[in-house]
Every structure is written in structure tokens, then in C-alpha cells.
Simulated assay, not measured.
Amino acid sequence: MAETNNKKTNVSKQEEKYLKSDFIENSEALGYKKEVVAGALFNCKKEELTKSEFEKLIKDFLERKVK
């Protein structure tokens, strides 16, 4: 009988990165107004973000308390 190789393949799933300007230009398609996206990205030091990083910035921005 032949043995089968049961090794798991380690596939690294890396998210694609997009420019901040791409998120602003496509804000309507992402479900946000341009002003919201620009505000969320205002103090962001990175020039490129993954979609999950972008979503976290938006969530944090929208949940901030107004003083």
C-alpha cells in the first residue's frame, strides 16, 4: 500500500494594499461619504492600507466622541 502525504500546506493570505487616494475616490462605492473617509484618513501616516485597516480606521473615526 502506498502512503499518502498528509502535510498541510501553509498558504499565507496577504491582503492587497491600496493608496489612500483610492479609498477617497471610491468612498461612495465603499458606502461612505468622501468627507467621512477623508476625516478618518486625515492623521494616518501610511500611504497604503489594506481594506481591513481602512475599515478599522473608519469604525474608530465614526465611534469617536465629540467634545
Rank of each mutant, 00 (worst) to 15 (best):
L49V: 05
A29H: 10
K7C: 01
K46P: 06
K34W: 04
R64F: 10
N43V: 05
A2P: 04
N43K: 14
D22K: 07
T4I: 15
N43Q: 10
K34E: 11
K7Q: 03
C44T: 12
N10K: 05
F61L: 02
K56W: 10
Y32A: 03
N5F: 02
L19H: 06
G39L: 03
K8D: 09
N10G: 04
L19K: 10
L62S: 09
F61C: 03
K46F: 14
E35F: 01
S27F: 09
F54G: 00
N10M: 08
N10D: 10
L41D: 06
S12H: 11
S12A: 08
N5C: 04
L62N: 12
E25Q: 07
G39Y: 02
V66K: 15
T4N: 15
E47F: 12
L62Q: 14
D60W: 13
E28T: 03
K56C: 05
R64H: 11
S21N: 06
E15I: 01
E3S: 14
D60H: 13
D22G: 04
E16T: 09
V37Y: 00
C44Q: 11
S52N: 12
E3N: 15
L62G: 07
I58G: 00
K45N: 15
L41F: 09
A40E: 01
N6W: 11
G39C: 02
L49P: 00
K34H: 08
K51D: 12
E48M: 14
T4G: 13
Y18V: 05
N26I: 03
E48C: 13
L19D: 09
E3V: 13
I58F: 00
A40N: 01
N26H: 04
A40M: 05
V36E: 08
E25V: 04
N43Y: 12
E55V: 11
E25P: 00
K20F: 05
L49D: 01
V66W: 14
L19N: 06
C44W: 01
V36A: 07
E28N: 04
A29W: 09
A38G: 03
A29N: 11
K8N: 08
T50I: 14
K65C: 08
L19I: 04
S52P: 01
K65M: 13
E3M: 15
S12L: 12
L49F: 06
K59S: 13
K67Y: 12
E3Q: 12
V37C: 02
V11N: 01
K8P: 02
N6S: 05
V36M: 06
A29M: 10
N10F: 06
K13Q: 11
N6V: 08
E28C: 01
E25Y: 04
E48L: 15
A38I: 06
I58A: 00
N10S: 04
N10T: 05
G31H: 12
L19P: 02
S27Q: 13
D22S: 09
L57W: 00
E15R: 13
T9L: 14
